[in-house]
Computed example of a mutant assay.
Amino acid sequence: MAMNSLKDVYLDQLQDMYSACKQSLDATGKLAKAADDKELVEALNAGVNGISKGMDQLQKLCADHGIDPTGEHCKGMEGLVREAKAHALDAEFGSPDVRDAMIITQYQRMVHYAIAGYGCLAAFANRLDLDGDAAILQEALEQNYEGDRHMTAIATQTVNKQAV
């Protein structure tokens, strides 16, 4: 599809975000299974639920605009998922606490990518006067910020201390 307007960019990025979510959903589930800290496992499982909800919302937005949500493949998230696998799942660790610290690192990288994507999408929707879309995307953005802050709290209050 030719990018001739902000609306074209918006639709392309809705599809790209859907792909990013789909890829991070599987990776986050694997990170949850590999994690040891109970609070971390719960937070990652909440992340899985949040990503799934975000995918549902993106799918609805795509349908509302007459596009297939699977029309793009997000290379950026592909790389982040590959990094998470290599550094948090396939690497060898001396203790579960050290693995948990790495799991948080890799998960937060994926979340930060989602924050950037949802932030851009919300800004585009606002500029295009798509108020309903903007509200949905802003809510997804806030949920990602909340998840990121919770993960930082787990890291700084528990996991990083144990990993020392």
Rank of each mutant, 00 (worst) to 15 (best):
Met1Val: 03
Met1Asn: 06
Ala2Asp: 08
Ser5Met: 07
Lys7Leu: 06
Asp8Arg: 10
Asp8Trp: 12
Val9His: 05
Tyr10Ile: 00
Tyr10Leu: 00
Tyr10Glu: 01
Leu11Ile: 07
Leu11Tyr: 06
Leu11Gln: 04
Gln13Cys: 10
Leu14Arg: 01
Leu14Met: 07
Gln15Met: 15
Gln15Cys: 02
Asp16Lys: 02
Ala20Lys: 01
Ala20Leu: 07
Ala20Arg: 01
Ala20Trp: 05
Lys22Val: 05
Lys22Ala: 14
Gln23His: 11
Leu25Phe: 11
Thr28Ser: 08
Lys30Pro: 02
Leu31Tyr: 13
Leu31Ile: 05
Ala32Ile: 13
Ala32Met: 15
Lys33Tyr: 07
Ala34Asp: 14
Ala34Met: 15
Ala34Val: 12
Ala35Thr: 06
Ala35Trp: 08
Asp37Lys: 12
Asp37Leu: 12
Lys38Tyr: 09
Glu39Arg: 13
Leu40Pro: 08
Glu42Arg: 15
Glu42His: 12
Leu44Tyr: 12
Asn45Ile: 01
Asn45Pro: 05
Asn45Ser: 11
Asn45Met: 13
Gly47Phe: 11
Val48Ser: 09
Val48Leu: 09
Gly50Cys: 07
Ile51Trp: 07
Ile51Ser: 08
Gly54Phe: 06
Met55Trp: 05
Met55Lys: 12
Asp56Pro: 00
Asp56Val: 00
Leu58His: 11
Gln59Glu: 15
Lys60Asn: 13
Leu61His: 00
Cys62Tyr: 00
Cys62Ser: 12
Ala63Phe: 00
Ala63Thr: 00
Ala63Ser: 04
Ala63Tyr: 00
His65Tyr: 01
His65Ile: 00
Gly66Pro: 04
Ile67His: 08
Asp68Lys: 08
Pro69Gln: 11
Pro69Asp: 11
Pro69Trp: 11
Thr70Arg: 15
Glu72Asp: 07
His73Gln: 10
Met77Arg: 10
Arg82Asn: 12
Arg82Leu: 03
Glu83His: 04
Glu83Ile: 01
Ala84Ile: 00
Ala84Tyr: 07
Ala86Ser: 12
Ala86Met: 06
Ala88Val: 02
Asp90Phe: 05
Asp90Glu: 15
Phe93Glu: 13
Ser95Ile: 11
Arg99Gln: 14
Ala101Ser: 14
Ile103Glu: 11
Thr105Met: 14
Thr105Gln: 15
Gln106Leu: 02
Arg109Ile: 00
Met110Trp: 04
Met110Lys: 05
Val111Cys: 13
Tyr113Ala: 15
Tyr113His: 15
Ala114Arg: 06
Ala114Gln: 14
Ile115Asp: 05
Ala116His: 04
Gly117Phe: 05
Tyr118Gln: 11
Cys120Ile: 02
Cys120Arg: 01
Leu121Ser: 10
Leu121His: 03
Ala123Tyr: 05
Ala123Ser: 13
Phe124Pro: 03
Asn126Leu: 10
Leu128Tyr: 03
Leu130Gly: 01
Asp131Val: 05
Asp131Glu: 09
Gly132Ile: 01
Asp133Glu: 08
Ile136Leu: 07
Ile136Pro: 01
Leu137Val: 02
Gln138Arg: 15
Gln138Glu: 14
Ala140Leu: 13
Ala140Tyr: 08
Glu142Ile: 03
Gln143Thr: 03
Asn144Leu: 09
Tyr145Asp: 09
Tyr145Lys: 15
Glu146Val: 03
Gly147Pro: 06
Gly147Cys: 00
His150Trp: 08
Met151Asp: 03
Ala153Thr: 11
Ile154Ala: 07
Thr156His: 13
Gln157Asp: 14
Thr158Arg: 14
Thr158Pro: 02
Val159Glu: 08
Val159Arg: 04
Asn160Gly: 07
Gln162Phe: 04
Ala163His: 14
Val164Pro: 04
Val164Tyr: 10
